[in-house]
Design a protein around this nucleic acid. Structure first.
Lengths: 353, 353
DNA sequence: TTGAAAGCGCTAACAC
DNA sequence: GTGTTAGCGCTTTCAA
């Protein structure tokens, strides 16, 4: 019927190698290499024969051998604090789709905790394994930055500016400000920011600082008192639970503001859960605004500032690929647009007691 | 002050190589290799010198060279349909934490769409790049299965049984049944299942079939009519939007059941959104049960059947590592426990018209 | 316990 | 255009 795809006399290792293909096509290994990688200096007829031989032998190039010889890995490392959070999962999705389409593999590292993060930067399991690195919203210490730079490879950050590095982000200052303006516009005067977990000297997210700044700037510009200890409360855990706990504490305290700006939607959603359980009407007694437009925000009718997370990831990945090409462009700072999405969690404050 | 970590006369490539370490330690490359990998037949003194030399030169082993020589990659491939969905992100988190701790790298592939899935199995970008593969909830066609098996490497599935393969899962049949029993126990007699997107011949999830079976079995056992066209409605999109649309259609139809069992929580959450917007009281007019215990389920007070997703991922990863060791165990079928979490979305049906 | 030598499978100069 | 020749940096027999 058909010829055996594995020549009987071949060395019969698990895979056909480039010399097997070369033999079958009647050319040298170098020509096979050139043909399969689309180099121009191969005659169409030869290339044709090589491609067919490769197909017949089910030849798959060995990335190890190729990488060893060429110095490239064909792999990009993506580092995120948490893969389970909506934001990071979407960032990874946007980036890895672009990278896979470009023929790159993606090595994923999620840090998960401060200790895991430290051991990551200490062991640096990316060294010699990837051609470039994309980090997402990692607030990096001096030490971590050095470890990353010591890799001496292209580096793009998403959501965290670093000197001399290409960064894709949103304008976190103005994002937080616009959340405040929305509330001010509705007549709120007693607004508190619900900020993310800090974990000592910070395994928060890189955007944290800027959002707090944006909050305070907008408050100050409107003549609201700010800078006190009470205008920003800090969650003591990540995500929903962090937001819920912080809200519980606020509810237990002496004074409940008329509005909350949460650093990110999951905090806001946690706060909403606490408010609902406590029977506090939203927005009747208190309004809540988030930042992100998490996929669940429409479900809980959360007013929020939307950012295009997948697009940020895709853009960052594309810039990384550009850097890998010939004539790499210099570092840039790409800022993507955001917009306020008004839903049911905000409204005018009740006048009177 | 201190000696230069890069010997002036060395070949000064970007990294120190094993021969640099060997030279500095005054041994052969073979001994360096043995020392650094903890082989027993190296004298403590020698190993000590090698380790110090490696540290001094900031030596990092080249995975490419090592892999080329040894035939191993030190990398595991994880394949998921979507990384942005809560379930898969958690599965990946559980698995990759275990794999990273064991010193393996993780190559992530998320398929995203049926066309991307097909091209994935056609191009098989895992070939020669990983030592083993973990697939999560992928319903595989005959063709895909063959492509995977052709890789000829250890394969563990999470949430999708396949002949002769190790699988970690929950009992999807009984999970769906228990959701039904909960409703029956509350007195419901008119129950409809809200099932996931099918996309022609199926890019749904592997658990889909079993959950429908569980639903029908429980209904039949209770003497409810089943098998009609109306006891299972199928969403026309994934996730929340799919659930919302399906619920909208049900609401527009002639008959509204008193209870819904959703194939997974995101569908249930979408359904809840539609119900809230339509002003239908839950559980007053209709009860809703989900499956998963998605992190948002507590926020919307969804009654659901919890499954330990991260633990499933971690278990699957561990089994994969076991398979990679000497004396690989045979294929097993690990079923993890689940439990009903009763929240506010279910209650007795209203008696009367 | 250690070293020498032979690859692993590919790419990149350099010839022709 | 195509082939030849060296490696890329390890691991692994096989000897010693």
């Amino acid at each position: 019927m058909s010829t055996n795809p594995v020549p009987p006399g071949s060395r019969r290792s698990r895979h056909a190698s480039i010399v097997d293909v070369a033999a079958l096509a009647g050319v040298s290994a170098a020509t096979v290499s050139r043909s399969l990688r689309g180099h121009s200096n191969v005659s169409p007829a030869t290339r044709q024969r090589v491609v067919e031989a490769a197909r017949e032998l089910a030849y798959v190039i060995s990335p190890q051998a190729s990488g060893l010889a060429s110095g490239r890995t064909g792999t990009i490392g993506i580092v995120v604090p948490f893969i389970t959070r909506w934001f990071f999962a979407n960032a990874v999705a946007g980036a890895s789709t672009v990278l896979h389409e470009a023929g790159y593999d993606v090595l994923l590292h999620h840090l998960g905790s401060a200790s895991a993060r430290d051991s990551f930067f200490e062991r640096m399991p990316l060294a010699r394994r990837v051609d470039a690195v994309l980090t997402v919203s990692l607030p990096l210490s001096e030490e971590h930055t050095l470890a990353l730079r010591a890799l001496d490879m292209p580096l793009v950050t998403m959501g965290a500016r670093m000197d001399g590095l290409t960064c894709v982000r949103i304008d976190d200052v103005s994002v937080a400000s616009s959340a405040v303006y929305h509330l001010l516009h509705q007549g709120h005067e007693d607004i508190v920011m619900l900020a993310g977990f800090d974990e000592d000297k910070g395994f928060g997210f890189a955007s944290s600082e800027d959002r707090r700044t944006g909050f305070r700037q907008a408050m100050a510009a409107a003549g609201m008192r700010t800078g006190t200890d009470q205008d920003v409360i800090v969650a003591r855990a990540y995500g929903i639970e962090g937001g819920a706990q912080a809200m519980d504490e606020l509810l237990a305290g002496p004074r409940l503001p008329t509005a909350i700006v949460a650093e990110y939607d999951e905090l806001a959603i946690g706060a909403l859960r606490s408010l609902r359980r406590a029977g506090i009407p939203v927005p009747g007694r208190i309004s809540v605004v988030g930042i992100d437009d998490h996929e669940m925000s429409s479900v809980v009718e959360l007013t929020t500032v939307r950012q295009p997370v997948q697009e940020e990831g895709a853009t960052a990945a594309q810039l990384l690929l550009d850097t890998l090409g010939e004539r790499p462009p210099g570092p840039t700072d790409v800022v993507l647009p955001t917009r306020l999405v008004v839903r049911g969690s905000t409204g005018s404050p009740r006048t009177g007691p």
